[in-house]
Design a protein around this nucleic acid. Structure first.
Lengths: 336, 336
DNA sequence: GTTTAAAATGTAAACGTTTACATTGTTTCT
DNA sequence: AGAAACAATGTAAACGTTTACATTTTAAAC
């Protein structure tokens, strides 16, 4: 026995329009009738059907979130940031963690084309032309998270990878006077990785340390990548004094390699990472790393997206906000 | 310039019913007209509006997922399991990680009452009467994950906490001959925790080890809880040979405490955990723990829920599946 | 070449709201 | 008391589909 607006209207002796207005918090309904309707609704256990409401209003109160598979460690924090903010403002969150690039596209098309959501938060560490195309064609607003490359005319929230990398390398140079600072980089088609590498090089240059090919090896942001990168660096005849791993996961791999090779951190080699993932605080010695405000990224994206939706500002002409990172000093760099 | 079914019908010279049938894969439309409609649709970039479809069909192709905040480490795996399976079957996932108990109820009511989803997956480590009430009253199917207590007449997928705990304690007894095995328990209102405690006690009893009050302290599944639990146990005059931490997070706390107290694992004290969280593989020495198939839990729940939705089996009279755990042997227990 | 059955298509009523616009009721002003 | 202004409510047309049921077309059978 389903109860709809009509039944409520009937029982309350008013028209369905009035009932609708009550539930839309319209001011133009008398308090006494409002109370009456609300009471009847409660008795009948009536909740307005959001699907019908969506159809009529052309709004779904739902935002779509598309995440790539690879965010692993961040996944939870991002969703949390997004969900929390969305919940506060009474919105729903439709997630899809894509399992492939094709999947990203499909989901995006579904989301955008079909009125299933009012806007989308998209995390695409590497934008490609087709994704851009879909966004451009769509009528619904999109907010990018940590997108790199050509994000033309989109809102984009990102981490300050460059400064983060710069400052942690600077720490190694200024505080510890290391001269030979190596780096295990991230995947070269990943924009986070690229910015981090740039920060590294800039810091070296700033402090007059010469560039040394042998001190930079490519990694892939994985534990194994870090493991091998570390071994490679530490097997050369010219060994570094310190290594900057482009992310914490690789630092974890480095810890394992160090253990195997009986190399002591930080006595024999200083090590720093990037991301401040949850795990890193439990490494011993505590990893020195760069904290990135992931949850904040999510909530900021939501706030911005909701703003776009409400103001009907479809395209917010290339808005970019870069969230600052902060240094987390542990003992792996040689501090105290 | 939005394009709806009417426009497609017009251009194709057929009725909207035919267009609808084409997109519903009805067999009763001639191949040639089908092709014609599909072609026009593609040209016009037409995608059926899922909201309107939902309203008409009274189906949303969406499942709701309600998770408590505290699942932290599992969050990602569960969502992943759910999302992957849902995606395979072309369903959408509406998530809500509740930030409080009130929140669980609200979300549940929204989800259930309103036709926003066709079914719900609910993870509620402690069921309470009101939640049960909502589920009972609702017309939509619900699948529980790891629910304890009175889950009357619901489908429920859970981890075999009891056996998992039993077997890891048994390992300590049989393989290592420890006599004094302590435990840091989980919150006493958490069903996972209770089952694990039961497994522990049963194993002791089975092998004729006497019950010892001083060997059991209460924890709360948090890192700090483990830290304090460990310190408490190791500060008594009668110290245990081995400690079973009710989950890995607490084991992490124990590692920290051990480091502070200069107690060596496993030389001075053996330590085991439960959950096999991602982090645990990076602890040194590798934590011996119990693996729980979290992602599988999620995907199984989805499969079951979809089954219920399709068969209109609203209430699957108390279906319970208990997924087996497996022992992960590291070095923290004293093994090689 | 009818008749009959089957296949393909069309018509129109749902689905449950929102919201311009129209109508009625109530004050306030002169 | 009547006009004017405003507040409260009602009417009915959207929103974009699906799907019983009715109708037309096509094929088969005689």
């Amino acid at each position: 026995m389903k109860v709809d607006i009509k039944k409520v209207a009937e029982k309350a002796g008013v028209s369905i329009a009035t009932v609708s207005r009550v539930f839309s918090n319209s001011e133009l309904v008398k308090q006494t009738t409002k109370d009456k309707v609300l009471k009847i609704s409660k008795d009948l256990n009536y909740i307005p059907n959001p699907i019908a409401r969506s159809l009529s209003r052309q709004l779904t109160d739902t935002i779509g979130v598309v995440l790539p598979d690879l965010v692993g460690e961040f996944f939870m924090d991002i969703i949390h940031g997004i969900d929390e903010e969305a919940y506060k403002q009474n919105w729903f969150v439709l997630v899809s963690s894509s399992h492939s690039k094709r999947n990203i596209l499909e989901t995006l098309i579904e989301f955008m084309g079909s009125g299933r959501v009012d806007g989308v938060i998209l995390m695409a560490p590497q934008m490609d032309e087709r994704i851009n195309e879909i966004i451009k064609r769509s009528k619904r607003p999109v907010v990018l998270i940590n997108a790199g490359g050509d994000t033309n005319n989109n809102a984009n929230f990102k981490i300050d990878n460059y400064k983060g990398a710069y400052s942690i390398v600077e720490h190694l140079i200024v505080k510890h006077k290391y001269k030979k600072i190596a780096m295990v980089e991230g995947p070269k088609d990943n924009y986070d990785a690229i910015d981090r590498s740039n920060g590294y090089h800039k810091a070296l240059q700033k402090y007059g340390l010469s560039k040394n090919e042998a001190m930079v090896v490519e990694g892939d942001f994985s534990v194994e990548g870090g493991y091998h990168g570390f071994k490679k660096l530490m097997s050369q005849k010219e060994k570094p004094n310190a290594i900057f791993m482009a992310n914490d996961m690789m630092a974890v791999g480095a810890y394992q390699a160090a253990k195997e090779m009986k190399i002591k951190i930080p006595e024999n080699i200083a090590l720093v990472g990037f991301d401040d993932i949850y795990l890193s605080q439990f490494l011993y010695p505590r990893l020195t790393t760069v904290h990135v405000p992931i949850a904040e990224l999510g909530s900021k994206a939501v706030i911005h997206l909701l703003g776009m939706i409400n103001n009907n500002k479809k395209k917010n002409k290339s808005f970019i906000e870069v969230l600052p990172t902060s240094l987390v000093v542990g003992e792996s760099c040689g501090c105290k």
